[in-house]
Simulated scan of single mutants.
Amino acid sequence: MKLVPLTDRVVLKQLEAEETTASGIVLPGAAQEKPQEAEVIAVGPGGVVDGKEIVMQVKEGQKVIYSKYAGTEVKLDGEEYIIVRQNDILAIVE
């Protein structure tokens, strides 16, 4: 099954959280901070949203940084995804 986002929505797959600190301390699952970096899985077509023309600026396969509390978490076929609006994406990681 494939997620197909509508209008200015983007489907992200969160990258794995760091399990050790820079000094080598192993963090338990509860202490790990949720990463804000993700890979773009699917991109909506853009279009007119609230009377403004939206042109999509991200592409599938790119790594991005998104707002900490943005989006809706979805579980599909055992995988977890986050669906966000394009304006919740803060930067593209190159």
Rank of each mutant, 00 (worst) to 15 (best):
K68R: 13
M56Q: 13
V43L: 06
A42N: 04
T72V: 14
G61D: 09
E39M: 07
M56W: 08
M56L: 13
K63L: 15
I41Y: 03
E53Y: 15
G61H: 05
G46S: 05
V48L: 06
V58T: 13
V49Y: 11
V43G: 01
T72D: 14
E60F: 03
K59E: 13
V48M: 14
E60R: 07
V40H: 03
E39W: 05
E53A: 14
Q57F: 04
A70Y: 04
V40A: 00
S67P: 01
G51N: 14
I54F: 06
D50F: 15
T72F: 13
V49N: 05
G61N: 03
K52S: 12
V64M: 02
M56D: 11
E53G: 06
K68M: 06
G61C: 07
V64G: 03
G61R: 03
V49K: 12
K52G: 00
G46L: 08
G51A: 15
G47I: 08
G61E: 07
K63A: 00
G51K: 14
G47C: 09
V48A: 05
K59V: 11
A38V: 12
V40G: 01
K63C: 06
G46F: 06
I41K: 03
G51S: 13
Y66K: 01
T72Y: 11
A42F: 00
G44S: 00
Y69N: 11
Q62A: 02
K68D: 09
K59I: 03
E60Y: 02
K68I: 10
E53I: 10
A42W: 01
Y66E: 03
E39Q: 11
V40L: 02
T72R: 15
Q62W: 06
A38D: 03
Q62S: 08
K68N: 06
V48G: 07
A42S: 13
V40Q: 01
Q57G: 02
V49R: 14
G71Y: 06
V58C: 07
A70S: 15
A42G: 02
G47F: 11
I65R: 15
Q62D: 08
K68E: 12
Y66T: 04
I54A: 05
G71M: 05
M56T: 14
K68F: 13
A42L: 03
D50H: 14
M56S: 08
A38C: 10
A38F: 07
V55S: 15
K59Q: 15
I54Y: 05
Y69L: 07
Y66I: 06
K63Y: 11
G44M: 08
V64R: 00
G51W: 11
I65Y: 04
G51F: 10
A42Q: 10
A70C: 08
Q57S: 09
V55H: 15
T72Q: 14
V55Q: 14
E39F: 02
P45I: 01
V40P: 02
T72G: 07
A42D: 10
G71Q: 05
